[in-house]
């Protein structure tokens, strides 16, 4: 029963899709084609990410992550988080499991938030593409403002969460990622 509840959103969306298919065949067919394409893309990207995370979890000792990204990592941890996020590729939902392992291994919350922000907006391949379509002024300005914004917002969020709320986040990932 717990399993069925977890699939609630999925089942609800599929029900809407089917209802649309009945009323508007063309639109419904396009929705189903796009949805299957999304599934296929996920089926392609997600398994190797999880495999890597499993290996990372087993082989990389906690002390290493704490040293690089933990509470005392300072500016080095901030820069490394920006770099890790910007060097990545792939959709944002691929970043959450990575963030989960980083939490489990004791990375500082603000660094994880910086990593997520960098993954979503600072990706280098995307930046190159953005420059070619919207011009270097647009792309460079956005990138530069975003770097500062992401770092500031990450620290702001870390401060706004109470100690209990932060502990809850770390507890959530103590066993799994």
């Amino acid at each position: 029963m717990k399993n069925l509840k977890a699939y609630g959103l999925f089942l609800a969306v599929i029900a809407v899709d089917l209802a649309i298919l009945v009323y508007d065949r063309g639109l419904g067919a396009r929705i189903i084609a796009n949805t299957s394409r999304n599934f296929l893309q996920m089926a392609g990207v997600i398994p190797p990410i999880f495999l890597l995370l499993g290996l990372l979890d087993v082989w990389v000792p906690r002390e290493t992550v704490v040293g690089l990204l933990g509470e005392k990592s300072g500016i080095k941890g901030v820069l490394l988080s920006v770099f890790l996020g910007a060097a990545a590729a792939g959709p944002l939902y691929g970043a959450f499991p990575v963030a989960g392992v980083m939490i489990k291994k004791g990375a500082r919350l603000s660094n994880i938030l910086i990593f997520l922000g960098a993954w979503s907006t600072l990706k280098i391949p995307m930046f190159l593409f953005e420059m070619s379509s919207l011009g270097y002024k647009f792309a460079v300005t956005r990138w530069a403002v975003d770097v500062f914004g992401i770092i500031i917002m990450a620290h702001l969020i870390e401060r706004l969460l109470t100690r209990e709320e932060k502990e809850e986040i770390y507890r959530r990932h103590a066993a799994d990622f």
């Binding site: 699939y7 969306v13 649309i20 189903i32 999880f50 495999l51 499993g54 290996l55 799994d176």
Partner: peptide, 25 residues
């Protein structure tokens, strides 16, 4: 490592399917 990867994947599968189907719609 492989077992952990599989377990995490299975845990997240419902959320992934939900989000991706919503995106498709």
């Amino acid at each position: 490592a492989v077992l952990k990867a599989w377990k995490s994947f299975a845990n997240l599968l419902p959320a992934f399917l939900g989000v991706l189907s919503l995106v498709g719609l």
